[in-house]
């Protein structure tokens, strides 16, 4: 119960901090996200002809539920909310639910740009998911377990980021893609008038944006037990180390958005399949040999 409350608090706190940092880096006032929340709370709903309200609700609500469910397997200090034996697979599965959320949202509003944004999401998913899964499998192989806690235990001597650097880099790229953020934000791109979220306003948009930040936080937080030794660190208590490391990864992901242009999937898919997948397999092989 307590862990659950802590998880939600951490998601809200880190999500808002990420939004404020993003606003600051984007040249706006730091408090802009709070103004945006107020604006969306009083905003009316946009209407489109023949929208499928049920699918839209499912899409928008699942977008915020999925990252919370993905977050329950991440150890916040010593233990996660739910210490599943297949935690890494669970995390991956919840994060793939987001594909469904975005597709339903893009489809349900019955408008061209959101639909085209949803197409882009599918292309993006095909490009990033395989290297992403290989990166996760590399961690599981190194830990000899699919439990997040075991992955942290296995890093007592040496963090995985040190001897699996390629898997870590691939994980960071796919974390951006997972949260359709920054260079991987084509599904909600400006050039598509906002893509999937183009017709969302008021509470729908608030939930959508909150879900997106929650995803970003969860993607950053999962990097800590997977690659950065979990709560390991001197002096400070382990929960604080988790928080510090998560905030560092999160800050990096937010910063990248302002430094790198958007990556189009018609170009990235080729790079992903011809470079990232072989690289991730080589990393898997190396880890496999070391473990043997």
């Amino acid at each position: 119960m307590l862990e659950g409350a802590v998880l939600l608090l951490a998601l809200v706190g880190l999500g808002l901090s990420a939004a404020c940092l993003d606003a600051r880096l984007g040249g706006a006032q730091v408090g802009a996200p709070f103004g945006e929340v107020a604006r969306l709370l009083v905003q009316q709903r946009r209407r489109t002809l023949l929208r499928d309200t049920l699918l839209l609700r499912i899409g928008v609500i699942s977008l915020i539920v999925a990252p919370v469910l993905a977050g329950i397997v991440i150890p916040l200090g010593d233990a996660p909310v739910a210490d599943l034996a297949v935690g890494i697979v669970w995390f991956n599965a919840m994060e793939v639910c987001v594909w469904g959320s975005l597709w339903l949202t893009g489809w349900a509003v019955n408008s061209v740009y959101p639909l085209a944004g949803a197409y882009r999401l599918v292309a993006q998913g095909l490009a990033y998911e395989l290297p992403h899964m290989f990166a996760l499998i590399t961690v599981a192989l190194g830990a000899g377990s699919l439990r997040m806690g075991d992955a942290v235990q296995a890093q007592q001597g040496l963090w995985f980021v040190v001897w699996m650097p390629i898997a870590f880099l691939i994980y960071l790229v796919s974390a951006l893609a997972m949260a359709f953020w920054g260079p991987m934000s084509q599904p909600v791109g400006t050039d598509l008038a906002g893509g999937v979220r183009a017709e969302l306003s008021g509470p729908d948009r608030l939930l959508f944006q909150a879900g997106r930040y929650a995803l970003l936080v969860v993607a950053a937080a999962a990097a800590v037990p997977l690659f950065l030794g979990g709560g390991a660190g001197p002096v400070l208590p382990s929960w604080l180390w988790v928080l510090v490391k998560t905030a560092a990864v999160l800050g990096l992901l937010v910063w990248v958005r302002h430094r790198v242009p958007a990556i189009r999937m018609d170009r990235f898919t080729q790079a992903s399949w011809l470079v990232l997948i072989p690289l991730s397999l080589v990393q898997l092989l190396v880890v496999g040999i070391v473990v043997l």
């Binding site: 984007g26 040249g27 706006a28 400006t190 906002g194 183009a198 306003s201």
Partner: peptide
């Protein structure tokens, strides 16, 4: 608008 540090709406649908 830049001087006031407002964030421009990227699509028109985001604007107020």
């Amino acid at each position: 608008i830049a001087r006031r540090r407002w964030r421009p709406a990227e699509p028109a649908s985001e604007a107020d």
